[in-house]
Design a protein around this nucleic acid. Structure first.
Lengths: 340, 340
DNA sequence: TTGTATGCGTTATCAA
DNA sequence: TTGATAACGCATACAA
């Protein structure tokens, strides 16, 4: 059976109140009493019941993170690294992380209501935003602390706390780099339309072209699902539709790697005849042959920073910067070379 | 403010008990009463307080997973995929997952005591075992439901529920494949000594050699830390120490990839002059050039299966198989070729 | 069919 | 310096 304050009370003769106060380190308890109580507590192997504490204290010292509904994608690297950042930053502040997924029968919003409305966490971290994101609307409506990795789309209101990467700038830098290498017919595989950041990627692409006075062609753009196979399929379609392309941007590394594979399968030499660029800088990017030129952003670090800020919101620290844009870094490798 | 049963009681005139029973779907409440109560509950946006439920019901519908102490390694792929399997299987059974890391000041065992002793979870999933693993001893001593991915080392008692992969067999198949390709001087980069499965990997390696009447040489073995850079360093040392090697086994893919890199940097053609084999079949393995021959085991699926079983243990279902060994699969790619 | 009383384990308030 | 009592929100045994 579990050891409770009551057990210590029985064994020591002191009241439950005194035990609680002694163990909590209050100053108004006799030092010898405290020692005695601590001794017995250790002897019995007492561990405070966190659930009871949470109920009484109205604090859970837990933050919540809800996994995207689909179990299987190649998009893992992002999420796992992010979760790691969150978890370790939380741990450094004595917080735990409640991770929840959506069961097939229920909706993602149900999970939010259960976790948040059910008082299981002190705050939430969201990892990606959609257009008019209902999760954000919900969290705002119940006034629950939360922070988001990523802004809203350009034309939507963004009055919530977030940190985002300036992916417009990232893609722009990448495309500009391709142009400098002599490419003019550049395709792009975009993220799904419903994801907020898609618009920023597209904007970066368009601006880079514009600055170089290269006309924007809608037929050079295609949406896919952030997976390797999705990148393959998109690249196939794009290449069939526009064989004149000499470069292709993937909106994440897996799609870029998929595109690279397709190009190579068709006998095109990537890095010389054809340029491929990615986004994220996952481990496999450096590993690829040719090594993938990509845009790096600090996933793990952002998980940490987001968490630190969320904990400050929870503690009603108003000094925290509410919104921030982080600059990504262009990592130049071999998959974009001087065009022959 | 949060809506409680009490609020519904006030508004509806029924007692808290009746509300509770109505919402819980008990049959002994008048249907019209129930409808009325449900209506008001929805109107008020009632969400049951999970913490109160947990305290009262002594069930948390949560399973726990504690992250290894070190925040940064390349070993992420394993853990993230595993956690995903766990989380989705849990979600399908209406369970959440509490993920905790160890803060720098405290020990890993403290985290276990806090989470388990603090009654925060109904069961624990452990991901890797060490020699005389104190976590397992603790969980056994408090008689808390748990399940482990991985057995104890060969000479230690294993009277706990687990699923493990027969990595002895996996490595043996890989090394045998190398031998069949004409290699006789085969090195191996082993996992850290303190990890239980290291002994099985070594045993698989030795048995494969033995069957082929190739003498075992301790100087062909080295331990490393499961990371890419660790693999590089180990391969460097091994190659300096034994330049006659024509093949190398990495105990996971990242180390194998690190070794491959080192060999290639030295101008050795991997896949022809030199063989490299890995373990895990992470996405980057198929991506490598040459594509990495490796041993595949279903990380995601094992996360799921472990969780399903754990939930049955929690429900005192004695029909569950307590221990199981799963066979891995040799994935033959290009990094091990016929020796010229 | 509904309500009263009690308890889950802890902390806070207040009186002794 | 210590202890009795109440409260957190819910669910259960039992009475009505």
């Amino acid at each position: 059976m579990r050891v409770t304050l009551r057990d210590i009370s029985k064994k020591s003769g002191f009241s439950v109140t005194t035990i609680s106060r002694a163990l909590a380190g209050y100053s108004d308890v006799n030092e010898s009493t405290r020692q005695e109580i601590i001794r017995i507590a250790n002897e019995l192997g007492y561990q405070p019941n966190q659930i009871a504490r949470q109920l009484q204290g109205k604090r859970t010292y837990t933050i919540g993170l809800i996994m995207p509904p689909r179990p299987h994608t190649d998009d893992d690297d992002f999420f796992s690294l992010f979760l790691k950042g969150v978890t370790y930053a939380a741990a450094r502040n004595q917080y735990d992380v409640l991770v929840s997924a959506t069961s097939p029968e229920s909706s993602e919003m149900d999970a939010y209501r259960r976790i948040v409305g059910g008082n299981r966490v002190d705050g939430m971290v969201l990892a990606r935003t959609f257009h008019n994101d209902p999760r954000i609307q919900y969290l705002q409506s119940v006034n629950h602390p939360f922070i988001v990795l990523g802004r809203s789309a350009p034309d939507e209101t963004t009055d919530f706390p977030y940190i985002d990467v300036d992916s417009k700038m990232g893609i722009q830098a990448l495309v500009t780099h391709m142009i400098a290498a002599g490419h003019r017919e550049i395709g792009i595989i975009l993220p799904p339309e419903e994801v907020s950041f898609t618009a920023y990627r597209l904007a970066g692409y368009r601006e880079a072209l514009e600055k170089a006075h290269i006309p924007f062609r809608p037929e050079y753009c295609i949406h896919s699902d952030l997976s390797f196979s999705g990148g393959q399929e998109a690249a196939r379609l794009l290449l069939d539709r526009a064989p004149q392309l000499t470069a292709m941007v993937g909106s994440n590394d897996w799609m870029a790697l998929g595109a690279m594979k397709i190009a190579q399968d068709r006998g095109i030499e990537v890095g010389r005849d054809f340029a491929v660029g990615g986004y994220d800088d996952i481990p496999a990017a450096a590993q690829a042959v040719p090594a993938l030129t990509t845009v790096r952003w600090p996933i793990y670090g952002l998980g940490e920073e987001l968490t630190r800020r969320l904990l400050k919101f929870i503690d009603r620290d108003s000094e925290v910067e509410r919104q921030q844009l982080v600059e990504p870094e262009l990592i130049i490798r071999d998959s974009v070379g001087k065009k022959a």
